[in-house]
Design a protein around this nucleic acid. Structure first.
Lengths: 132, 132
DNA sequence: GTATTTGCAAATGATTTGCAGTGCT
DNA sequence: AGCACTGCAAATCATTTGCAAATAC
C-alpha cells in the first residue's frame, strides 16, 4: 500500500510519523489509540500522544481513515475502504471485516424516511470460534 | 411505562433519581449524558454527575438501558427495547428508531464465521428531511 | 438494622490547546 | 522562505473513586 500517495491525495503533508501510523494501522487492520501509541513509540520513541491525536484527527477529517465505534469497547481506527460491516469478539477483542452490502441495507432502512444517507455502521458483537 | 417495575425486574433499588433518569430517557427517546444531566437538575437540583454516571453504569450492566454509539457524535442512551436500527441526522442530531430486523442481518453476516452473536448495532447517518 | 445509594471532593483518564522549535515542499 | 508538523507542558473535558451522611427495604 502506498501511504505517501494516500496522504498526498488527502492534502496532508508526508511525515515519518504519519507514514508510521498508516503502516501500523494497515498491518493491524483495526487499532485503538493506546495500541497505536504503544506500537509507534517503538519506531519514534519521542513521539507525543498529542501528535498522535492531531494526526488521527487530521486523517479523520479528510476521511483517509475511519473510526469504528463498537458497543462496550474502545474505538478502533482503520484505513478507509469500501463500505463493509464488522464482527467483533467481546472476549479476545478481535475485529473482523465482513464484506457485506451495507449500502443496500442503509437504503432499505432510510427508504421512506426522506434522509440523505452519508454513512452506515453495522457492527455485530459476539464470541468468536476460538473464544467459545 | 412502569419504571418501578423495570428497576425491580433488574434488581435495582427504586430511588427518585433513578425514576427521574428513566422518565427523561423515555421522553427523549435517546439522550446524551450532558442533556440528561441538564434536564435532571431541574428536578433534583443537587444531583451529582457522579450519581448519574453510577446509575447509568448500573442500568447498563443489567441491560435495562442501552448505549448507542454512532459515528462522529457522542453516545446516547435509551431504554432497552426489541432490537432495532437507528437513523441519525448529523445536522440537527436527531436519533430515530427504525424497526428493522437487525437480528436477521446479523445472522446473515455471522453466517459462516462461527461466531455466537450477542448484539447488533446498525446505525445509518445522514441528513434528515428538515435539515436538507 | 443492614446494605445500597447519594452527593461531594478529589483522583484518574482521555483529549485538546498553545507555543517554541523543526522539517517539509 | 513560508507554512505545517512535532513535542512538550499545561489546560480542559470526561469518568471514576472514596467516604460520610441519607435512604431503601
Amino acid at each position: 500500500m502506498n501511504y505517501e500517495l494516500l496522504l498526498k491525495q488527502n492534502n496532508l503533508k508526508i511525515t515519518p510519523q504519519r507514514l508510521g501510523i498508516l503502516q501500523l494501522m494497515h498491518e493491524a487492520g483495526h487499532i485503538s489509540i493506546e495500541e497505536l501509541f504503544a506500537s509507534i513509540k517503538k519506531q519514534f520513541s519521542s513521539i507525543s500522544l498529542a501528535t498522535l491525536y492531531k494526526n488521527i484527527n487530521a486523517m479523520l477529517e479528510t476521511s483517509l481513515i475511519k473510526e469504528v465505534k463498537a458497543p462496550e469497547v474502545k474505538a478502533r481506527y482503520e484505513i478507509s475502504k469500501t463500505p463493509h460491516a464488522h464482527l467483533v469478539c467481546h472476549v479476545c477483542g478481535e475485529f473482523k471485516d465482513i464484506h457485506f452490502d451495507v449500502v443496500h441495507v442503509a437504503h432499505t432502512i432510510a427508504d421512506t424516511s426522506g434522509y440523505t444517507i452519508n454513512d452506515t455502521s453495522l457492527i455485530v458483537s459476539g464470541t468468536c470460534p476460538k473464544c467459545q
